[in-house]
């Protein structure tokens, strides 16, 4: 009887906590969307911001966020996968490996503003990359890498030993076994990690203030030569992302409609992240099915 009561109480507490989390999340999302949706229009999404007049948009910032995401993932994913594969399959089980693992953990808990300052001192000044998308992407890589490495390692460690042995026993090399059996099996896990990392890129502001900068040059959306200074594709130009823009407009915006712009931009940010998540999950399921023939 007592055990049953305890079980009932525990169950109701767990359900209550879960409901609370869902409520908070729904409330937050609902409020952001409620305040911002009304302000979103095609004009808002595509035009450049205004400093002191009404009616500015977030076009360049939206583009910058997406472009920075792509750049960061281009750097993070190969390095993260490589390091994760090494840690899981090649690193000998000894103190040095454990030390590397510890360092990776520590790296993931460095506050992002510190990463930003590090980026300013090392990437922007010392290496002379300046306030640029490239500096921003490298700074974001610094705190996305630990996540990527850990997730890849976990994904590969989760592959059943029998599957790995089956491939090796067919005379396949370790590398081929990893690429053609183990990675496809661990794809869902690795993909989840990638999505999480990507979400952080979208939402990050602190680390970008001092690396990607707080301004955007007048972008010329007809010039797609990546080496031209006004081309949107130039990775060495300063770029204010959506998250940074929201922060800036809230703290020092002069336009009369600053509050509405911030609300609209927040809604766009949230919607983009959601779309990206669903899109990546769908892609992941599609790829997993294709690789594994599981319906």
């Amino acid at each position: 009887m007592r055990a049953k009561t305890a079980d009932k109480i525990a169950t109701s507490i767990i359900i209550a906590v879960a409901a609370l989390i869902v409520l908070v999340l729904a409330g937050l999302l609902g409020y952001i969307l409620y305040r911002g949706l009304g302000h979103i229009s095609f004009h808002f999404l595509t035009s450049a911001p205004e400093t002191i007049r009404k009616g500015g948009g977030i076009g360049p910032q939206l583009f910058n966020s997406v472009f920075l995401l792509v750049l960061t993932m281009l750097i993070t994913v190969p390095i993260g996968l490589g390091a994760g594969i090494y840690m899981s399959e090649y690193a000998p089980a000894n103190r040095i490996t454990n030390f590397i693992r510890l360092i990776v953990e520590v790296l993931s808990s460095v506050p992002s503003i510190i990463v930003g300052l590090f980026g300013l001192l090392v990437l922007v000044n010392l290496f002379g990359f300046g306030f640029s998308l490239f500096s921003g992407a490298l700074a974001l890589t610094v705190f996305n890498l630990p996540l990527m490495v850990r997730i890849t390692e976990q994904g590969l460690k989760g592959v059943p030993r029998e599957q790995k042995e089956a491939s090796l026993a067919l005379g396949l090399s370790k590398w081929k076994t990893i690429t053609s059996v183990m990675l496809p099996i661990s794809l869902p896990v690795v993909l989840t990690g990638t999505i999480l990392a990507a979400g952080r890129v979208f939402g990050e502001a602190a680390a970008l203030l001092f690396t990607a900068g707080m301004s955007s040059p007048r972008l010329d959306f007809t010039d797609w030569n990546p080496f031209s200074p006004f081309s949107p594709l130039n990775p060495f130009r300063p770029a204010e992302t959506l998250a940074v823009h929201i922060w800036k407009i809230n703290s020092e915006g002069l336009a009369p409609d600053a509050a509405e712009i911030a609300a609209g931009a927040s809604a766009v940010l949230v919607i983009t992240v959601l779309l990206f998540n669903f899109g990546a999950r769908w892609l992941g399921r599609y790829m997993y099915r294709k690789f594994t023939a599981i319906k």
Binding site: E162, Q163, E165, A166, T292, A293, I294
Partner: peptide, 11 residues
């Protein structure tokens, strides 16, 4: 080699 548990690949 054939193993104790059937271990086809998820393909």
């Amino acid at each position: 080699m054939v193993f104790q548990q059937p271990n086809p690949f998820p393909k």
